[in-house]
Nucleic acid binder design. Structure first.
Ligand SMILES: [Mn+2]
Ligand SMILES: [Mn+2]
Ligand SMILES: [Mn+2]
Ligand SMILES: [Mn+2]
Lengths: 229, 229
DNA sequence: AATTAAATTTAGACAAATCTAAAAAATAAA
DNA sequence: TTTATTTTTTAGATTTGTCTAAATTTAATT
């Protein structure tokens, strides 16, 4: 086995993996990541984050100069993507094979994502028949860390009377997932926007070609759909 | 939820869980467990074991007086059995659903057994259709920690020309499992003892009603079978 | 530009799990 | 029953990941 390959197989602590994943996600939305962002995301203290940043830098997983911000190195990004791959495959397994609800799986996957066996995750992928997205519509990276972003638009930008199919959820807090579950909106649900009130930008939706439900602008901004143009 | 129930749901560190499991297994074979036994089993140092014994005692998982030996408390035994349940269910999953060989699954299960969700393991049990034994023939405790010992006898005590069915393996080291795999002996394999040599107690076996293979006394002592009397 | 506020880092501490080396207790041998 | 050997425990360190409080740097306001 080559040196580079062995390096990519290296096992990091669960804590380090959680940091790498958090930084990866924060890079997505902001571009620049701050110490406080990470502390907030991981429910920890800024001082603890600084400590860890130094360790990640020492292992060349992070590009970091004190006070000057930071970002993942190539290697750090690669590791993060493998954790995300594991997280999402396990979520898919829990929902599709073990009948969990989409709002129950995140916490459990947060533990399962740290199981180290490469062979396990590749066999699981095969067993699940190579799913492309997890139960929340997020793309699952392949074993090389490649994944495709799905072109999607939030409900506020779905043209009125066009039917869209739910393809992703932005805010995936338990509260949000509970609300969507209650309104019977899930991945693949067909939705039409019937009206957007000028007053508070709340929306009336036709869900599953049946019931009319109302959602706030805040909710609408976090429900993504794909539709035929 | 009752106090007792919450206690049984308590999460312990992976390290503590490994100690409890090791002590449980050592109690089985010996009755009395020693500090050195545990150190040897867990590939650690006697001093580390003593440290941990004190912590387990403080948590009432262990009955222990310095220099006087130790054994699991009721609660410790209960925790150990839940870890063993998880270990064996995951092993079964890996072999039956992900096509792993029986000699590949132990290490991975050693990690998976520490995933904490109770609901996960009960759903997994259901998904697997409540298997009673793991891929090595060891019984899987139910969610209350109950399990039944299978009546079995080692190959040396299988009456000559009686056909037995392999139901368990004693020594489950990778070396042993590799040997058995090579001789095409696995769980459920039908075996007849054709001859036991007085010189070294080695055995000639008829395997699968076909090939004649020779195994040492050491091997025979670690292959268990059940048969109709 | 000087001051205030916010973000970040350092200093020092702590808990968990481990180790080595040395002391104490229990066992085995002489 | 002394003496020697083995087992077990203690004492004192080390590593990893975390914390609080204080210092430093950067950013925002007057
Ligand atoms: Mn995690
Ligand atoms: Mn997800
Ligand atoms: Mn384990
Ligand atoms: Mn097993």
């Amino acid at each position: 086995m080559s040196e580079a390959k062995r390096e990519s197989m290296q096992k990091y602590s669960s804590s380090k993996e959680n940091y790498l994943k958090a930084i990866f996600h924060l890079q997505k939305s902001d571009g620049v990541v701050t110490t406080n962002d990470v502390a907030n995301e991981l429910q920890t203290r800024p001082a603890s984050v600084t400590d860890m940043l130094k360790k990640l830098k020492a292992q060349k997983l992070l590009i970091y100069e004190r006070y000057k911000g930071f970002k993942l190195s190539q290697e750090g990004r690669k590791v993060a993507l493998q954790i995300i791959r594991k997280h999402r495959l396990w979520e898919y397994f829990l929902v599709e094979k073990l009948q969990f609800g989409w709002d129950e799986v995140h916490e459990i996957a947060e533990e399962l994502e740290h199981i180290s066996s490469r062979k396990l995750i590749d066999r699981l992928d095969e067993f699940l028949d190579y799913p492309k997205t997890d139960p929340h519509g997020d793309p699952i990276p392949d074993s090389q860390g490649r994944f495709t972003l799905i072109k999607q638009v939030d409900l506020l930008h779905l043209p009125p009377n066009k039917t869209g199919e739910v393809s992703g959820i932005g805010d995936q807090s338990p509260e949000m997932l509970e609300l969507l579950k209650h309104k019977q909106i899930g991945l693949g649900t067909r939705i039409e926007v019937k009206k957007i009130f000028a007053f508070d930008h709340s929306l009336e939706l036709k869900v599953r070609n049946q019931s009319i439900v109302t959602v706030s602008e805040h909710v609408a901004k976090n429900v993504f759909v794909k539709y035929d143009e």
